[in-house]
Design a protein around this nucleic acid. Structure first.
Lengths: 202, 202
DNA sequence: CGCCAAAAAGACTGGTTAGTTTGTTGCAAG
DNA sequence: CTTGCAACAAACTAACCAGTCTTTTTGGCG
């Protein structure tokens, strides 16, 4: 029992530190030793808990990144009424986090998608799945917004979802360049302007 | 004279092939030997023409990527009237190219920005400069659109430019996932809807 | 032809990497 | 208290990588 707990704790710590470094420096430019140095652990420890570097990263995707995307971009819709309002707050919050995090390097999902695309099919497939969850959630909530009388019923929910995801990933990418605060302001301003085009006409 | 021509041709060929591989597999995950294998050239040839791998990449940025961004995203505005119409065509054309290119991996600029961010300040700086040229051009043309009576004069050109750049980079990223054709259609549809919010009200 | 420099070949070096193996520690159950 | 195994340590291997160095080929020119 005690043993199992320690095992879980160590693995959790490894994954957490691993993500931070992979995210900052990229998967391929980060060696297992780099991660282990930060953890003050040895090769033995690493390969005792994980079969390979790839499997380690996959476990990070499944255990940490998925949760992050869920809590930041999906959960906020729970029990809310107007999807446009939720989206506004949701994106603004996410951008605020990014703005104040010096170490932030863009949007986790899109960054890794860029890095692994054409290199590791397994991981790309996993990333796609997480994207899909986000997309489906957006579409569902937009549709609900229609029946609830917030979104115009002529609106193409699929297209709006894609457009929203695109713009968000893009602005997160631009923020890497710097000037995150100003960018966040500009983005949210234009997003609101865009929301008017999908709101019910009265 | 002949010699100089051959030298230029070889360097051009190296840069062209180099970009293709760096773009597909990433800079750090592509070895100089990988590029040379594709070129059927030797180490000696490479280091005769270029001082280092980094300098090689920088020359690619300056000679090829800048031109690409210019001809695809900046030049189309030349001598045109309504910036919204140009943008529509311009983005659609760029997305069409991406759609039909099996090897396409996203938007060159943003991909490399992601990869080099936090790793190579020199290259990040260069990439920022190219971004800036694009941004300035967008803003200038939006402003011109105001005086020409196409864009509403209350519109925040800076913010619109950022929003457009974001959405474009984002959709290019999403296209990597597949379903490029449908995505392009959805994106252009929503883009047009967005353009209505910045057009002059009559 | 013969010279010479440009262009290219390719063996080599020092450093790094993912993964293996073998050895050590510490704790919990018998 | 001792035995056994989970949890780690660390040296090691084979492959790879950027860059160097020495040697060879090539092509234009006198």
């Amino acid at each position: 029992m005690e043993k199992n707990l320690k095992r879980m704790a160590t693995m959790q710590r490894m994954q957490s530190v691993g993500l931070a470094i992979f995210y900052k420096r990229g998967y391929y430019d980060t060696s297992v030793d780099d991660v282990l140095k930060e953890l003050s652990l040895s090769k033995g420890a690493f390969y005792y808990h994980f079969k390979s570097k790839e499997e380690f990263f996959i476990s990070i995707l499944q255990n940490i990144i998925f949760q992050k995307v869920y809590s930041e971009l999906i959960a906020p819709f729970e029990g809310q009424e107007n999807p446009a309002v939720v989206l506004d707050k949701c994106f603004d919050n996410a951008l605020e986090t990014a703005e104040h995090n010096e170490l932030d390097n863009g949007f986790v999902l899109s960054n890794f998608m860029t890095e692994f695309s054409g290199k590791n099919e397994t991981i790309v497939k996993l990333l796609k799945e997480i994207f899909k969850v986000w997309e489906v959630n957006l579409i569902t909530n937009l549709q609900k917004g229609k029946t609830d009388g917030y979104i115009d019923r002529h609106v193409d929910s699929d297209a709006v979802a894609s457009f929203l995801m695109s713009s968000y990933m893009g602005v997160r990418l631009l923020m890497v360049e710097g000037n995150a605060k100003l960018l966040r302001y500009k983005y949210i301003q234009q997003l609101r302007s865009y929301f008017k085009t999908i709101a019910v006409k009265r």
